[in-house]
C-alpha cells in the first residue's frame, strides 16, 4: 500500500514532464536583433543620462557651464544613435 502511494510521486513527474515534448512543433519566438537591441539600449542610456543631468541642474547641483557642455555632447550622441536606429529599421523592413 505504502509502495503504491509512494510510486505516485515519480509517476506524476513522468506524466507532467514527458507529454509537453510531443506537443507543438517548431514554435520559434522573436529574438530582438542584436544590433538593433544594442542601439535601443544606447538610446535608452542617453535619454536617461540627459534626464538625470537636467534633474541635477534643476536642483542646483550642477552649474550652467558643466550642464550645458555635457548636455551638448549627450544630445549629439543621441541624435546619431537615433539616426542609425532609423536606418537599421528601414533596412530591416
Amino acid at each position: 500500500m505504502t509502495l503504491i502511494l509512494l510510486s505516485i510521486i515519480p509517476l506524476l513527474g513522468i506524466i507532467l514532464l514527458i507529454p509537453p515534448l510531443f506537443k507543438g512543433g517548431r514554435d520559434v519566438w522573436d529574438v530582438p536583433e542584436a544590433r538593433i537591441e544594442a542601439l535601443e539600449e544606447k538610446k535608452r542610456m542617453l535619454v536617461h543620462a540627459i534626464r538625470e543631468l537636467d534633474f541635477d541642474f534643476g536642483t542646483g547641483k550642477l552649474d550652467v557651464g558643466d550642464h550645458d557642455a555635457q548636455r551638448g555632447t549627450l544630445k549629439e550622441e543621441l541624435a546619431e544613435v537615433v539616426g542609425r536606429l532609423k536606418k537599421e529599421e528601414g533596412a530591416g523592413g
Binding site: 507532467l16 514532464l17 507543438g24 514554435d27
Partner: peptide, 26 residues
C-alpha cells in the same frame, strides 16, 4: 529540466522550454 531548458534555449522550441519550466515547477 537542465537538459530540456538548454535544448529549448538553443533550438528555440517551445516544447523543450515548457518541459524545462515544468521540471522547475515539479
Amino acid at each position: 529540466g537542465v537538459v530540456a531548458s538548454f535544448l529549448g534555449g538553443a533550438t528555440k522550441r517551445m516544447s523543450w522550454v515548457r518541459a524545462g519550466e515544468r521540471s522547475l515547477a515539479y
